[in-house]
């Protein structure tokens, strides 16, 4: 292949946005500044810390990305994470009951969470309820289910040491949870690049009418996106339980903001059709890096949120500048 051919090829890949170039540049810029402020930022242990803290939100955004690609939004994150956390903690060996399903608890929790996605997806596709409304409803339903499971006792504690060990270093200094997250991200990338599910998600987000006219069962793929995102959220809930050692209704608190800003910063358009899994993961990474770096840089905790908000704003402006005409549609 000629150099010219390579160049064309490279431009095609970058131009099509398969690689989140602006987000990566932002990540490098932020990392650069933080390294100047404290060289320990780039130390091996700190990079491990950052990866560890990114694992759970990364799993969340893998699911969320597909819904956003189709032009919808899934706000049920915190409710479904709560369900995933509570169900898992009550099914592995714990101090509330005699059940001890071990690792089997996770698929059960994930399936229960997927049920919430099914409800939201049917509401959106069959009843034509706006996705933000349907998923706010399933958010509250999820929270309600988690509260019912919580009952009126202390937080259920996980006694299954093997389950907790998922949060301890496993290989190359990364925990089992990190490796699990990497598997989920790779799976998301495969779905996005090679499966109909992913390709059609782009098509639906790009133009639902055209996709429908070309004979693609749009509703079925939309429904699939909501189910898949809930599966990811519930898995994240199980991971929170492994990491903290307890089941909690508040397990997902703060994750919605982190996930949505991660998706947006990464460059996935909220109106759908552009972006991808990798974009969102890099977006989440930026958020985690900023939070971590500001502690290392001794930024006063009083100023951290201001800085965080400002950086998010700048990153958003930088990444969506070219699309601002299109974005105006949803303002």
């Amino acid at each position: 292949m000629t150099a010219m051919g390579l160049q064309v090829r490279a431009r095609r890949i970058l131009g099509h946005g398969a690689i989140p170039v602006p987000a990566l540049i932002a990540l490098l810029a932020v990392s650069g500044v933080l390294t100047i402020l404290n060289t320990r930022f780039m130390s091996v242990t700190n990079l491990q810390t950052i990866v560890d803290q990114t694992a759970i939100p990364a799993v969340i955004v893998v699911g969320l990305t597909f819904v956003v690609l189709t032009g919808s939004i899934d706000l049920s994150v915190e409710g479904v994470v709560a369900v995933g956390s509570m169900v898992t903690s009550l099914l592995v060996m714990n101090d509330r009951n005699d059940l001890a399903l071990g690792a089997l608890a996770v698929p059960v929790a994930v399936i229960v969470g997927g049920g919430l996605g099914l409800v939201a997806g049917l509401a959106v596709t069959r009843l034509r309820i706006p996705s933000f409304l349907a998923t706010i409803a399933t958010w509250y339903i999820g929270r309600g289910i988690a509260e019912l499971l919580f009952g009126d006792k202390a937080k259920p504690r996980v006694l299954d040491e093997g389950f907790i060990a998922w949060s301890h270093p496993l290989f190359l200094g990364f925990s089992g949870l990190v490796w699990l997250a990497i598997v989920v991200v790779l799976f998301g990338l495969l779905l996005q690049q090679f499966a109909r599910f992913g390709r059609y998600a782009y098509a639906i987000g790009g133009s639902e009418e055209t996709t429908k006219l070309s004979g693609i069962p749009v509703r079925r793929y939309r429904l699939g996106a909501f189910i898949f995102s809930s599966l990811c959220f519930a898995l994240a809930g199980a991971m929170v339980t492994a990491r903290t050692g307890v089941g909690a209704v508040a397990a997902g608190d703060g994750q919605l903001f982190l996930a949505v800003s991660g998706v947006v910063i990464g460059g996935t358009l909220l109106i759908g059709g552009r972006g991808g899994v990798l974009h969102s993961v890099v977006g989440v990474l930026i958020m985690v890096v900023i939070a971590n770096g500001m502690i290392l840089a001794d930024v006063s905790p009083y100023w951290q949120q201001v800085v965080q908000g400002a950086v998010v704003l700048v990153a958003v402006i930088a990444t969506v500048w070219r699309q601002r005409a299109r974005l105006r549609v949803i303002l």
Binding site: N38, T45, T49, Q53, A251, P301, Q304
Partner: peptide, 23 residues
């Protein structure tokens, strides 16, 4: 050595502590 907010939250406490340990 340092003080930070972890917003009363367990996960946040875990994250901030991790960062303190590297710092």
């Amino acid at each position: 050595l340092g003080d930070q907010t972890a917003k009363w939250d367990r996960t946040e406490g875990q994250n901030v502590m991790q960062t303190f340990l590297t710092k």
